[in-house]
Design a protein around this nucleic acid. Structure first.
Length: 125
DNA sequence: GAGTCATTCGTTG
DNA sequence: CAACGAATGACTC
């Protein structure tokens, strides 16, 4: 039976970090990637997609560095992503139009300062 | 603020 | 060795 929990060292690091994200908080792919030692958030995303410990690792607490929601269960959009937002919303992390409402909820030490997120700018409908 | 192209690291085929 | 992926940055509108 080749069906064994074969995970790579890279995945172990990703799951270790993600599983340590406290409730009501989120982390970015870039942040995790940086802690691991690489600057490839895509590698982190792939590790989470193949996440063999789906319910064990709170992958729903991982979002993109641009404060957008990101993907979930291999979907970049759809009801799965909606569920991801709903889960975070239940934990106190609110999203507006697919983007994080409160940047303060993000751990990871620091975020890209180059990008001008919602800093003071607001465009309601 | 929103959309598009190119880049980058690791895993899998 | 080649292609893909839950992403990101830079550039343009």
């Amino acid at each position: 039976m080749g069906l064994v929990k074969k995970i790579t060292p890279f995945q172990q690091k990703v799951y270790a970090i993600v599983s340590r994200i406290p409730r009501g908080r989120v982390m970015t792919y870039q942040g995790i990637a940086k802690i691991i030692g690489c600057n490839s958030a895509q590698a982190v995303g792939q590790a989470l997609k193949k996440n063999p410990f789906a319910p064990k690792v709170p992958c729903h607490r991982v979002i993109k560095s641009n404060l957008s929601v990101g993907g979930f269960f291999g979907k970049q959009s759809g009801k799965y992503v909606e569920k991801k937002i709903a889960l975070l919303k239940k934990e106190g992390v609110l999203f507006l139009d697919g983007h994080l409402k409160d940047v303060c909820r993000v751990l990871s030490g620091k975020i890209s300062q180059k990008t001008n997120y919602f800093g003071g700018k607001k465009s309601p409908k």
